[in-house]
Amino acid sequence: MIRIENLYKRFGRNEVLKGIDLQIESPGIYAVLGPNGSGKTTLIKSILGMVIPDKGEIFFKGNDISKSPDYRNDIDYLPQIANFPANLTVKEIFSMIKDLRGGQASDQELMAAFGLSPFMDKRLNTLSGGTKQKVNIVLSLMFNSKLIILDEPTTGLDPVALIRLKELLLQEKAAGKTILITTHIMQFVEEMADEIVFLLEGKIHFRGSVNGLKERTHTSNFEKAIAQTLTHHYA
């Protein structure tokens, strides 16, 4: 579904991506991991066309993404920070995004699942951080897209919403979708991810299953396995 070839990106003097090759074909949950500044968000934003690479190509369903914005019709994206126009209501922001994308949206069920119905006529600047994040999640999951990209989806969620989110992601996975997640919560990764893509200094350091990484580092604890990978690398 996604094929990334030889991707390079630098911001000023800071070389963030140094030759990424990545191919994701089969459906499932993929966790993109790495320390701060390893290029996770840049990689994700390159796929979305928000960051324009210096070198390299990205293909989505076989088409070069730099040619037309239409491929984003098939991608759902959850940005890291939820911040919406202050004076629009929740209802309006939903209709705006639906307007922009067209097509079928399953916003009603999702809104019920996250308990957003009482907030529909509230202005967005009156919502709490967690409620905004719920709006954010509903916005990004309400279309039935083949690829779902989530940047730090767990930020600010209460336990109930977190459980809902996990259920939802499992449902989507069962429906044959490809889900790309970045997160720093290792427990979430261990529980959800089928495969991890570990970025280190702008390169893919490891790709495989959670158990694969544990075996490689000879540890039984995933968090320790990650820590060990990092210390080995920097040692």
Binding site: M50, N73, I97, L100
Partner: peptide, 8 residues
Amino acid sequence: ELLLAQPV
């Protein structure tokens, strides 16, 4: 950023 991720 959210808008840029839409097909526009």
